[in-house]
Design a protein around this nucleic acid. Sequence first.
DNA 1: GTAGAATATGACCGATTAGTCATAAAAGGA
DNA 2: TCCTTTTATGACTAATCGGTCATATTCTAC
Lengths: 228, 228
Amino acid sequence: MPKTTFYNLSATRRARIEEAAIDEFCKNGLRSAVLNNIVANSGIAKGSFYQYFENLEDLYAHVLTLVQKRKTDLVASLETPNSIMDTFGYLRWLIQISVVFMLREPRLAKIEQRDFVDHPVINSIDPETGERISGDGRFHALLTQGVLHDDLATWVDTDMAAYVLNLIANLIAPYMVDRIGDKASSLADGSVDIAYDPLVQALFDNLMDIIEAGIARDPQIRKDFYSK
Amino acid sequence: MPKTTFYNLSATRRARIEEAAIDEFCKNGLRSAVLNNIVANSGIAKGSFYQYFENLEDLYAHVLTLVQKRKTDLVASLETPNSIMDTFGYLRWLIQISVVFMLREPRLAKIEQRDFVDHPVINSIDPETGERISGDGRFHALLTQGVLHDDLATWVDTDMAAYVLNLIANLIAPYMVDRIGDKASSLADGSVDIAYDPLVQALFDNLMDIIEAGIARDPQIRKDFYSK
DNA sequence: GTAGAATATGACCGATTAGTCATAAAAGGA
DNA sequence: TCCTTTTATGACTAATCGGTCATATTCTAC
């Protein structure tokens, strides 16, 4: 946990330090991060660093909270999903958020991914039901709602499904980017997000069809199939 | 690439070095591995190390090939899947292999996972068809066969599906182990593989049902559902 | 303006690192 | 046996590391 002096800093100085830390940690993780690089790149004295943090590990923990914060900010910046959005529309939105995050904040996403592999199984226990909750709880909550709304097949193990969906959300983005390669349209100016590229959306459609076919109670794609 | 002197070594000496290298690399990856630990733990002189390898990176590359080799050995050691096994039986077998590998060789699996996150998108091009092949090709080949045998839904993007299945195979094991926790049966002596624990198999059944429902042309679970 | 508290600084230190090299030991061929 | 080639060794070096601390600067309250 950063010391209070860190929070007393001006926003710009704090941002410079955080920026340098992100740069360093995204390269090869905590263990091989070099403090000298961080202080050099942020333009502060090494002694100052120790006024703000106990050590590198302390800074790393702070960066991990930053990752979550920036992701939350991203969610807030995009329009809230329509309340009448159904389970699978919302699921698509959740996964797409992760992809957009990786495209907009590749360094933070890298840090998050590494952390994910080092601690792939994060879970908590629901205090009311005593039920296991995998991941950060977003997918678990969604699937639980999906069950209540009769949108999900009853035989699906929701906690495992939540884990797998979290897995996909975390690591599908680099595939999509690589898959469409330089065929991405209208990205030269960088103003249009690659996540909204038609080719990526087509891949997304396919992915969501597979997921829906996999866990929905009454998947549209199967109805289409059976009706043919 | 190791120098020829390394291959001239006795098998036991070579094994000692590889063992120490695996121990070191599985902890925190290449960048933070410490050569002194490896030479100390393998009981060789530091000077000797440089007779065998150019540097740490060279050794790391060798360990990565070791990972693949041991995985291949594991596949060979388990009975070959029945030739009449169908697409999804074979798919289950493929995923299960990855889980067994992680349970039997956790250090190698850890190294592989880290490598996977650092280079999540590995792909090659089929020389005949010019088609893209994601991952190590096993899942891609299986799905391609599945399409030919009419076992897969035609609308499924096979390369993306191969990527996702590879993802699941690589990272589902820690979930399953944590999920069943200490409820694992008859494992005290370590003679029975946790992968064959009934609880794990039940989870596997569920996972495979989801996957089959997701990508099969005519999923059994859906037929069951519709027949009810 | 001034005193005292809070913050900033970078030279410095001891520890640790990858890599070198002179020398010793072992192996091999005659 | 003796000479040559190959292999083994660990003390050593130069560079780099995290962390400290005496000192300088800035801020705050009156």
